[in-house]
Simulated scan of single mutants.
Amino acid sequence: MADLLDLEYPFTGRWLVQNSPANRVPSHGTALFATSYAIDFVPVNDAGRSAPITLGSLLRSERPERFPGFGRSVLAPVQGVVIAAHDVEPDHPAHRGFPSIGYALTQQRRAQAGWVALAGNHVFIESGGIVVALCHLVHGSVRVQPGQHVQVGDVLGQCGNSGNSTEPHVHVQAIDTADIARANAVRLTFNGLLPRNGDVIDATA
């Protein structure tokens, strides 16, 4: 089995890279649920920015619909077979500023609750013995089902704020088995490269 999987970007438009394994491993500060090489993409506007930060956003939680990428299409980054599709989790408010401190204090509780509590709505695609997970999708937006064959660029769902997410984004990771409790992380690249934190990806449709 390959120890590295090269993907297409699972979106079009402009997206900001966060928590990249190009900057540190484990990329999210933990190897829990085989996330060592996971990467996050935050949708941004044409200027490369997320929702404007105001006094209100520093003091209270925000509706996820306020963010420029909430509801953007999430695409299959690889050809394969859908082996899991879950989209019944709610999209919760986004947390920046002081609200993010309180949210961080609940991190351990979410981790103890298991994979779904962290991933939220998600899709697993199996390709050549490797499973690609795309997480934090919008409630009710998943358009594929287990057993379905997908091609690169097929719409899987929409970028949301379900699971362990402080603002709408897409979390991507590759693993060697769908049994997340036993899975090992698989390194990944995108079009042969691994973007770094702070890079803005402009994926043309």
Results as ranks from 00 to 15, higher is better:
Ile180His: 00
Ala2His: 11
Gly48Pro: 08
Ala119Leu: 03
Asp46Phe: 00
Ala104His: 07
His139Cys: 14
Leu55Gly: 11
Pro99Gly: 13
Ile175Lys: 01
Asp179Tyr: 04
Ala111Gly: 10
Asn45Ser: 13
Pro90Leu: 04
Phe70Thr: 12
Gly160Ser: 12
Val82Thr: 13
Phe124Pro: 00
Ser27Tyr: 01
His139Trp: 02
Gln158Gly: 14
Ala181Leu: 05
Asn23Thr: 15
Gln79Lys: 12
Gly13Met: 05
His86Glu: 15
Arg60Tyr: 01
Gly160Arg: 08
Val123Lys: 06
Leu7Ala: 06
Ala178His: 01
Ser73Met: 06
Glu65Ile: 01
Pro64Gln: 07
Thr189Phe: 03
Gln158Ser: 15
Phe190Ile: 01
Leu156Ala: 09
Gln158Glu: 15
Gly48Leu: 04
Leu75Pro: 10
Glu167Met: 15
Glu126Asn: 09
Arg66Ala: 13
Gly97Met: 12
Asp154Gly: 09
Gly114Val: 02
Leu5Ile: 08
Gln148Asn: 03
Gln79Met: 09
Val82His: 11
Ile101Pro: 03
Phe190Glu: 03
Pro43Met: 14
Gln18Ser: 14
Glu8Trp: 00
Ser165Glu: 09
Gly48Asp: 08
Ile201Tyr: 00
Ser141Asn: 10
Val155Tyr: 00
Gln112Glu: 15
Val81Gly: 05
Ala104Leu: 01
Gly198Cys: 07
Ser61Met: 03
Thr30Glu: 04
Gln112His: 14
Leu137Cys: 12
Ala47Thr: 13
Leu32Gln: 07
Ser61Thr: 04
Ala178Thr: 11
Thr35Pro: 07
Asp202Ile: 00
Pro52Ala: 04
Val155Ala: 14
Asp154Arg: 02
Glu62Gly: 13
Val138Leu: 05
Thr177Leu: 01
Tyr103Gln: 06
Thr177Gly: 10
Val170Thr: 15
Leu188His: 08
Ala34Pro: 11
Ile39Leu: 07
Val25Leu: 13
Ser50Ala: 12
Phe33Cys: 14
Thr204Ser: 15
Gln173Glu: 08
Pro10Trp: 05
Ser20Leu: 03
Gln145Glu: 14
Gly48Thr: 09
Leu32Val: 07
Tyr103Ala: 12
Ala47Asp: 15
Tyr9Thr: 04
Leu59Trp: 03
Arg14Asp: 12
Phe11Glu: 15
Gln173Tyr: 00
Pro90Arg: 07
Arg110Ser: 10
Glu8Cys: 13
Thr204Met: 10
Pro52Ser: 05
Ser36Glu: 15
